[in-house]
């Protein structure tokens, strides 16, 4: 006799698949925001499940800030090749021309121009009406009240005060010309769920998530990996090889590594279960200012 019940991971998976299908059914030109991290890997896997046996009904979009870890780019290209996906890479060329970098203008300005502006440019250039992202409500406080289908006005702004109520699974996907939507199929997943799912489904992720000896310098309490020679070393800073891994991946100068011996998925899970600090702890952009994420989201950051 079948039990007719789903485990919590199966329930989350089914919900995400339903969200993906809703996007494909109701938007003219959606796009999957592919940032190469573990959440994107899960997102991509779920999208493939949602449209099986067909292909993805939308392209992948990677906003390349030019400061991503080299291993991330290699991983991205391999995944796209192996799965036969359509990938759009967009970089804010004006930012590149102006030499915008986290080292010169600081992380806030850099993020604004190379991520937020770049995303807006890409959405306008390709006329995307819905961008699917891997944000989760458990990541930080302003995201805890984010909708699954989150409305953006013609200027890509998020207005947390006038969010549409989301009842049952009757998502309101209606927008007018020029407006757009962000859809978050992983809204109800936690970091642990993501790793658990990667383990259960055997999903490939960037090797940077696993511990290895890597050259790092210690800055403001974070371990920054010297991924290429663009990282200006401060006086007295000497890169040292340490056994580290990353809990979250972004731009290498802004992403702190953690010292860890975890080289397998069960070891990562165990580490997560035991230490349990929050993952964005290691991302510098969130601590720029109090409530910075809500401010960024209002400005059009994902």
């Amino acid at each position: 006799m079948a039990s007719y019940s789903l485990t919590h991971l199966e329930q989350l998976e089914a919900e995400s698949i339903e969200i993906f299908r809703e996007v494909a059914a109701t938007f003219r030109k959606p796009v999957l925001m592919y940032s190469i991290g573990k959440d994107s890997s899960v997102l991509l896997h779920l999208a493939r499940k949602a449209f099986h046996p067909g292909k993805l009904p939308f392209p992948l979009l990677h906003i390349d800030t030019t400061f991503k870890f080299r291993e991330m780019i290699a991983f991205r290209d391999r995944v796209v090749r192996e799965l036969g996906l359509e990938l759009i890479v967009h970089t804010n060329e004006e930012g590149v021309r102006k030499g915008i970098s986290p080292f010169v203008q600081g992380s806030a300005v850099y993020t604004d121009i190379m991520k937020t502006d770049a995303l807006k440019q890409a959405i306008e250039k390709y006329q995307f009406d819905c961008a699917i992202g891997g944000a989760r409500r458990d990541e930080e406080r302003s995201r805890a009240k984010e909708r699954i289908f989150s409305f953006r006005d013609a200027h890509h702004r998020w207005d947390p005060k006038s969010q549409r109520p989301e009842l049952w699974r009757l998502w309101n996907t209606r927008i007018r010309d020029g407006e757009s939507m962000r859809a978050f199929p992983l809204s109800n997943w936690t970091e642990l769920d993501v790793w658990h799912y990667i383990h259960v489904e055997n999903i490939p992720v960037v090797p940077l998530y696993f511990a290895a000896l890597r050259p790092v310098v210690r800055r403001k309490g974070s371990l920054i990996m010297v991924d290429d020679d663009r990282l200006p070393l401060e006086p007295g800073e000497i890169p040292e090889m340490r056994l580290v891994r990353f809990r979250t991946l972004g731009c290498y100068p802004l992403t702190g590594a953690v010292e860890s011996p975890a080289t397998t998925l069960p070891e990562i899970l165990e580490e997560l279960l035991c230490t349990n600090t929050t993952e964005r702890h290691d991302r510098l952009i969130d601590t720029d200012q109090v409530a910075s994420m809500e401010q960024k989201k209002r400005d059009g950051y994902f």
Partner: peptide, 24 residues
């Protein structure tokens, strides 16, 4: 920020428990 997990559990136990755990 808002995920709360028991701090005394190993991966093996976790994975075993998860197989029969429902979401409420």
């Amino acid at each position: 920020m808002s995920t709360f997990t028991p701090s005394t559990i190993d991966a093996e136990t976790f994975l075993r428990e998860q197989r029969r755990k429902e979401l409420v």
